[in-house]
Amino acid sequence: MLLLKSLEGEKIERFPVWLMRQAGRYMPQYRQLREKEKDFLSFCKNVDLAVKVSLLPLELLGVDAIIIFSDILVPLEPMGILVRFEEGEGPKLEWDQRVDGLKRITSKDTEFVNEIVKGVKAVQKEVPVIGFCGGPWTLFVYTVEGKGNTDFKKAKLFMWQREEEYRKFLSLLSDNLVEYLKGQVKAGADLVQVFDSWLMHIPYENLKDYALLLKDFFQRLKQELKVPVIYFYRGSGEYLEILKGLPVSAFSVDWTVDMLGWMERDARTFQGNLDPSVLYCEEEVLQRKVVELLKKIPRRTKYIFNLGHGLSPDMELSKVKLVVDTVKKHRLA
């Protein structure tokens, strides 16, 4: 499988490509399936529908990996946190703010996610299946804020004023996420990705402390999962200076990071980092931007093409397909 070969540094003829949030509302076929369930969380829990959605990018785009259709907030619900999705407003979370009241989970608590992995694996064998979870910090801020936010003030105050509980919370999240991913790998996931989408909101002074927790977290994943682990975070290249010691197979970075420079001095696989906004450009410009990035990659393996963040609902399916096709046509000399 091309993506796994690239991760391992094997010789490849072209760079592999998949896209974050590659199955989503920009697809008419996704919207048709979405109408079959009353709300988004129910949609995620409907194994048959989730398998069909997961497969759409392979069928419509020809991507080199399938990431299962789910949501990073799914493992919070069995912990005792109320999670609901409101149309047009995004996720809303409620809990009593008592860390001691939160539960440890096992992979059986989210068995429907494992069944989605099994369903995708049963249908196709041509590309690897990616399992995933949210990063501990990202799930922490979502939970404390109760929703996505712009400054995450409540989460920062919790971290500063309730330091012991903050550490307990992140430790519990880490334990639960290990179990959550173990279930996905046991079900057949070929690799996993950890999404720390809100890491850019952690104060730099607190990042070193968080990196220590992450080091232990990823070490456990390495030992217990025995599959490649990709860490996606949002934040600057200065953050990567602190995170570079993490025992991960690959870093997935956004467009604020000098990925090309990092590839010159770090032998690990990198993934990214085209700015998703480029997809709003005219096709000629879009195609040119993709090719320009590919030509600058300073190696012939250990790279995976992706965006610096996920696809948006108002993007055009034809342009997303153009990105994938352009990457697949770019041959390595």
Rank of each mutant, 00 (worst) to 15 (best):
V144Q: 03
L60P: 09
V194N: 02
M200K: 13
E94R: 15
Y303S: 04
S197M: 09
L4Y: 03
E86F: 14
R21W: 06
Y204R: 12
N273H: 06
K147F: 06
L260P: 08
V253P: 10
L322F: 07
L41D: 02
K296R: 11
M20E: 00
K153A: 15
K215E: 15
M159R: 12
R162L: 14
L199M: 11
E87T: 07
F85I: 05
D175P: 10
T269V: 13
P298F: 00
F305W: 01
T326S: 05
G237S: 15
S197C: 12
V253N: 06
D196E: 14
K289V: 04
S249D: 13
P28M: 12
D196A: 08
Y204T: 15
E165M: 12
V227D: 00
V51S: 00
P247M: 03
I68Y: 02
F69Y: 04
K319C: 04
I297L: 08
K321R: 03
I67M: 06
E292I: 10
G134W: 08
G308S: 11
F152C: 08
A65F: 02
F40A: 09
P16I: 04
Q223D: 14
K125V: 05
K328E: 01
F169G: 05
V120L: 07
N149Q: 14
E145K: 01
V291M: 08
W95K: 10
E111S: 15
P75G: 04
F69G: 05
I72N: 09
K154D: 09
W18T: 00
P313F: 09
Q124F: 04
K121L: 05
P247H: 06
N149T: 10
Y210V: 12
E94W: 11
S236H: 06
D71R: 08
S107H: 14
L317Y: 00
D275Q: 03
E165A: 15
E37T: 11
N176D: 03
Q223S: 14
K329W: 03
I105H: 03
L311G: 06
P228T: 02
G62H: 00
K52C: 05
P128V: 01
R167H: 14
S42E: 13
L274N: 02
K147V: 10
L286V: 08
M1I: 02
E238H: 11
F15W: 02
D190I: 04
L55P: 07
V63I: 14
V192D: 00
K186W: 05
V123K: 07
R300N: 14
G90H: 05
H309N: 08
L207Y: 02
F218G: 01
G188P: 01
K147R: 10
P28R: 07
L49Q: 01
Q32C: 11
W95D: 10
V141N: 03
Q22D: 01
Q287G: 15
L212T: 13
K38W: 04
R265N: 11
R300G: 15
V320E: 04
C133I: 04
D175M: 09
I68H: 00
I130E: 00
E292A: 05
K52R: 08
T106R: 02
G308H: 01
K295S: 13
K38P: 11
E111G: 13
N46W: 01
R31M: 14
W198K: 07
F15G: 00
E8K: 12
W18C: 06
M200E: 12
L332I: 15
L139S: 06
S174L: 13
N46Y: 04
K121T: 09
